[in-house]
């Protein structure tokens, strides 16, 4: 328990440092958002004093303050849950984010579970049938090709062809217009249907990393002595593989889950905006285009928070599954 608490405190410290350093970079960079906003308001003919007050109301700090006071004030806002007001939507950033979070959680966890399951299966198949060169070569080639396609390019291609041109799958919006949002079957079915294409993109572009990693690990395990021994005892090799892989590779799999989670979360910026889905990613993408700084920075902070929580969650669950993991750390 003591160990879990220590982990949590460490994560909190890392989160705080990550957020404050990012904010520091932002307020110190040559493009201080407060100043840019102020210039924008002044250009609209708003008097200086009022413009300064407006900037302060939107983003939480004033363009006239020294950098450290901007930094402190924004951090204080983050800690108290006050992230400013959106310039484009004119509503509190926190509210915009709260509306977006459930969609992103759904999208990312749906893609993540599919990626992990399919990635592990393909990886094990690669290791198991490694004597079959044709199989290994062709699967490896396909995986390498998908590895080289940036997810936003695959999204664009699927959007244009499978969506717009051939109309095979829905490619815009999170659900169709004729369902009522809520806990009803039609709505859920419609959401799943609309997320098919985006999820395909996420999964196809993240599988290669998993499949290669698992297959390398499984091949290494298959070469070890205890496998030869188990074979000599007459255990069927598929069962050996399954038992030993699951036993010996849980740690790397767990470590990878946090990394893939982060990767997918960042991927939503491109995918949600491409397929016009609600969520943190599309919120960040659209507000970046509109230079809506309060929302941009707010979403950024929330994404960092999600990443830290994701890492903490995998660490803790792994520690509870395998107590040995707790000893490894000092």
């Amino acid at each position: 328990m003591n160990w879990a608490l220590r982990k949590a405190i460490f994560s909190l410290a890392a989160w705080f440092l990550a957020v404050s350093i990012s904010i520091l970079i932002i307020v110190l960079s040559p493009g201080d958002p407060a100043l840019i906003m102020l210039t924008g308001f002044l250009q609209q003919g708003i008097p200086y004093d009022q413009a300064v007050r407006m900037v302060q109301a939107y983003i939480g700090f004033s363009p006239a303050e020294p950098w450290w006071s901007k930094w402190l004030r924004y951090l204080l806002g983050v800690v108290t849950g006050n992230l400013g007001v959106s310039i484009t939507y004119r509503i509190p950033v926190a509210q915009l984010i709260a509306n977006a979070i459930p969609w992103s959680i759904f999208f990312v966890s749906y893609s993540l579970s599919l990626t992990v399951i399919l990635g592990v299966l393909i990886g094990i198949a690669l290791a198991y049938y490694r004597s079959n060169t044709i199989f290994v070569r062709s699967v490896t080639t396909v995986l390498t090709v998908f590895n080289s396609i940036p997810n936003w390019i695959l999204a664009a291609v699927f959007f244009v062809y499978i969506g717009a041109r051939w109309q095979l799958l829905p490619y815009m919006g999170p659900y169709s217009n004729d369902v009522t949002p809520g806990l009803n079957l039609q709505f859920i079915a419609s959401v799943l249907y609309h997320y098919t294409l985006p999820t395909m993109v996420m999964v196809l572009t993240s599988i290669p990393g998993w499949a290669f990693g698992i297959s390398a690990m499984a091949s290494a395990i298959l070469k070890e002595d205890f496998i030869t021994y188990a074979k000599a005892r007459g255990l069927p090799s598929s069962r050996i593989l399954w038992t030993y892989i699951t036993r010996n590779s849980i740690l790397p799999i767990y470590a990878n889950i946090a990394i893939t989670f982060t990767w997918l979360l960042v991927g939503t910026v491109w995918l949600e905006s491409q397929f016009l889905l609600p969520g943190l990613g599309s919120l960040l993408a659209t507000t970046s285009g509109a230079r809506d700084y309060p929302v941009m920075i707010g979403v950024y902070v929330i994404l960092i928070t999600a990443i830290v929580l994701g890492a903490l969650f995998t660490d803790l669950t792994y520690g509870f599954i395998d107590p040995r993991a707790r000893v490894g750390e000092t």
Binding site: A18, I25, L265, R291, L303, A311
Partner: peptide, 24 residues
């Protein structure tokens, strides 16, 4: 190690996106 761990929680493209938007 602390610096590494903090940097690990900040995805490059995310911070890069913000910076690209605010840089002149």
């Amino acid at each position: 190690s602390l610096a590494i761990n903090v940097a690990l929680t900040i995805p490059t493209y995310l911070l890069a996106l913000i910076l690209v938007v605010i840089l002149p």
